[in-house]
Amino acid sequence: MNSLPLEGRSILFVGGKGGVGKSTTAAALALHLAESGEQILLVSTDPAHSLGDLFDTSVGDQKREIIPGLHALEIDPEQEIQRYLARVKSTMRHYVQPAMYSEIERQIELTRHSPGAEEAALMDRVTSLMEEGPTSHDRIIFDTAPTGHTLRLLALPEIMAAWTTGLLRSRERSASLGKAVDRLRGREEARGDELAWFDDVKEPATDERTQKIQEVLLERQQRFSRARRLLLDPKMTAFILVLIPEKLPILESEKMFKVLKRHKVPVAGVVVNRILPKNQTLGEFLESRRSQEAEYLERVEKAFAKLPRVQIPLLSHDVEGIDALREVAQHLEIDR
């Protein structure tokens, strides 16, 4: 039970409380897999990106090669929003009279700063990377933002799929009522429209526009449900929880594990980071610390009894640069 079962799983999420070493773990895992000959894409979704610092290089919104076999990118929601708004504006030019451009453009600009926009944009990018990633890489590893944010990200596809399904159903009811109206109209067409003034309801046009609304919604819905299916497929996806042997990180990981289970997201295992090194005398101060750590480790064992657990010792220096990441990686036991 002391290695992470990652065989064939091409979408990995690394998550946990802030400051426990999520990015370090994700980067070490990525490096390890890349150096074993896999093509890896490492993606940071955390607004406070740190991949660049870890690899001692700059990483941006577009993927770039860090070492042969390892590409990385840090999602910038701002740029994703930009791309989306540009797309909406170009649809607008097809469907709206030029006189209305400025009004709609104003509305589009307001969305840029609306609550939830960044989250939604991030989610858009994550779902498209989840689909693209495995086509061009052996694995895609997400270094996720702190817990709450990530759980929301996992729940969103479900909420959104339900939402778009509701909207689509409404459109379908409307379309079938429209057809029924047309059928009753059949005779009238043969006769000319002289009695049309009887109708007190004007017909909404069943045209290209209606068709397009349907298309837009359908594409959204399919995209969300594809992401959801991928996320919940234990053959494709694995979530890795990172924590340190301290009270709050353990509590938070327990909560997170519960929520993941409730959403049926497959969890591959737990990485316990920064354990005081064994076989070394540490002095009185750190020895008392060690006995407290033992209690927490016991708690971790109980809380995650059914999960594989991997331990990484505290290092004597910061983890920065490829060599230090390799040092961490050698403790990551993986079945791949």
């Binding site: 989306y84 708004l85 797309r87 909406v88 649809t91 607008m92 097809h94 469907y95 709206v96 709609i104 509305q107 589009i108 969305t111 609306s114 939830g116 926009a117 939604a120 944009a121 959104m160 939402w163 778009t164 526009r209 397009k212 609304i213 837009v216 919604l217 959204r220």
Partner: peptide, 11 residues
């Protein structure tokens, strides 16, 4: 879905 329905606005 406010963000996502923005693309319906022009329509």
């Amino acid at each position: 879905s406010n963000y996502y329905t923005l693309e319906l606005l022009p329509l």
